[in-house]
């Protein structure tokens, strides 16, 4: 079991967390094409590398972003979405 740093609750074993998938910017639904929207909904950036991901700490109900290298499984930093600069 890996450890993960919740920005609020500190380092916890992975079993306390739920993976929320990659953090992705949504295209503007009013201006994007059907094809662009379908790609947003279905396609994923599946190659290994440093990714921004959603993670959820269950016991405290905390969503946060983890920057994780999906190749090495090393997390470089975690922060609450939108509070990237503060941390």
């Amino acid at each position: 079991m890996k450890l993960l740093q919740c920005p609020i609750n500190g380092i916890r074993p992975l079993s306390e967390f739920t993976y929320g998938g990659e953090y992705r910017d949504m295209p503007d639904p009013d201006t994007c094409t059907d094809k662009e929207w379908a790609a947003y909904v279905h396609y994923r950036n599946g190659a290994p590398g440093l990714k921004k991901e959603w993670w959820y700490h269950g016991p405290s109900g905390t969503w946060f972003i983890a920057e994780r290298d999906t190749m090495t499984d090393k997390v470089s930093r975690t922060y609450i979405a939108g509070q990237e600069e503060k941390q």
Binding site: T18, G20, W54, Y56, G61, W63, I80, A81, G82
Partner: peptide, 20 residues
Amino acid sequence: VYREMQRNVQLWKMQVTLVN
């Protein structure tokens, strides 16, 4: 559902407090 609500409150930056 509660979890997804929490995520979207954060993502959409809305002034919302959720209580389960």
